[in-house]
Design a protein around this nucleic acid. Sequence first.
RNA 1: GCCGACGUAGCUCAAUUGGCAGAGCAGCUGAUUUGUAAUCAGCAGGUUACCGGUUCGAGUCCGGUCGUCGGCUCCA
Length: 639
Amino acid sequence: MSNNISITLPDGSVLNFPPGTSPAQVARHISPRLYRDALAARVNGELVDLATPLSSDAEVEILTFASEEGQRVYRHSTSHILAQAVKRLYPQAKFAIGPAIKNGFYYDFDVPKNFTPQDLEEIEKEMVKIIKADYPFVREEVNREEAREFFAQRGEQYKVELIEDLPPDAAVTLYRQGDFVDLCAGPHLSSTGKIKAIKLTSVAGAYWRGDERREMLKRIYGTSFPRQKELDDHLRMLEEAAARDHRKLGRELDLFSIHDEGPGFPFFHAKGMILRNELVNFWREVHTKWGYQEIKTPTILRQDLWERSGHWDHYQENMYFTKIDGENYAIKPMNCPGGILVYKNKPHSYRELPLRMAELGLVHRHELSGVLHGLMRVRSFTQDDAHIYMLPEQIKDEIIGVIELTDYLYRIFGFDYDIELSTKPEKAMGSEETWEMATEALREALEEKGLAYRVNEGDGAFYGPKIDFHLRDCLGRTWQCGTIQLDFQMPALFELEYTGADGEKHRPIMIHRTCLGSLERFMGILIEHYAGAFPTWLAPVQVQVLPITDRHLAYSRQVAERLQAVGVRVEVDDRNEKVGYKIREAQMAKIPYMLIIGDREMEEGTVSVRARSEGDMGAMGISSFQEKIQKEIAEKAFN
RNA sequence: GCCGACGUAGCUCAAUUGGCAGAGCAGCUGAUUUGUAAUCAGCAGGUUACCGGUUCGAGUCCGGUCGUCGGCUCCA
């Protein structure tokens, strides 16, 4: 059959169909199950509706909810259903945009009222009606002017603006479901009935096009899944995340607090400081091993330093200023200018390079009041900063060193991570060749380590390209922590030099890097990652000794002293309470080990061990327990 | 900063149309001497975030300030 078209599937197999066949029919041919699960298709790399007729040979991939694109189409169609429901209930509403986002979708409306949770329930009910009605999504390609006219007549000024901003050659398409029409590039599901489980999750204000000078719109967030169970699992995951909220756990576990007297300036309590100090000790140990020196630079420095570094021009609105003896000073928002003064304090030889100077630097940044969030977004925090001064030929090896160090640090906490490489932005300083060289060095380092990475074109800093580490916690959420930035700007601005083998002065290249990012934020991430149940090496209290009656108190104290003598953080619960009560409290404080001491233990010189995670482990000799816990701490074991 | 919701004891939350500010947990005191997730009883705990207004009367209604929470392009 010579007039048939060849359809190449992702596995490389080729099927022949008559022209005009749709991806839906292809799916039906492959399997009834795929046909049922199919949401949209990718034809020659482009996402299309399942009903799109195929006129010539093509590579076709059927998309289901298993793929990210499939999920996006599914959620995007759900957002149209949301819009239709809102249109029915609030006919005066004007429509902005309604995209799919990670884990869901939103739609922005211009309505005079505020949506309440009750309104969301009503809207959800209306959405269910629309789903039950199973309206087909109908695609319609229209003339640009017609489309403009169509939306202008209905007073949909946002849609008109969107059409006007479309590139001149772009096709304008409408999607219709029942009596509802929306401007949309698609693709969409075949009909509203494909949506099975929906939930509107929240409502918030959002500016039209994210521009605070434009109209404030009402945004409704929601999500949808092909099965009720998947929706339930997702909602359960959100609940789990809420239960792990570091702000809640920080209060319950007495780790830190934030007061009205200092919004964005966290207070660390005794237990929080233990966690923090353990982190710092570990960090120091690792950095010493990796050949870093540690320095400390002042918090307040003269304003002219910041004028020279470019912060005055580029970062002023985020900085705090003060006056000393009539002179202008600034509170540091970054550590680099101070660190550079240390480098400049004496001449350097090429033999000293690479010079790795680390600093746990306390920086202050004026963040907008509305973005403050527990320890995650604060106004003062400690960066685990380092600046590496080096020769051009050392770039790659130094980058590899930082990558290895960061990997080592993250693995200890059980974090997996993704890497992004950001390249030259539009507004950048420095020559094309330097950028080329620097970006290549970063790329080569990643390739040599065999690491997968995503490229973010044009997302680098204005002074150099960078590698970012996004770590992934146990709930699958990602956090940008580590970053490696190549900087040619500061060495030039501050006229940094070293003497080369040729006896001439040369300019070093600088790396600016952090691994944990901010100690405060990293602690917040750890609290949520472990749900407050820290591995023993980090736990503020590692062992709680629980005497059953006060006749066991003396022996309990002996046990505690013995453990304390070898550096174990131990407390004795000497309160006059039943052992069940003491266990409950220790368990809720998420203490890794409880040692229960009664007559039997006293007689036999043992302790009864109850582990936070495993429960009753029976009696063991004091020495065996001591060995066990010391080993666990030394190995920084998970438990 | 902007939009919205919220702010009652250390914590979690009550308090009818505006009508005497309450409970549980935590705390303190006493009794109880307890074996693997809460022993009993008593006591104390408040300028209802702050400032102003309306009212015979304000936790509640109005205005302002401060703070908290959610959100503020992941672009039809």
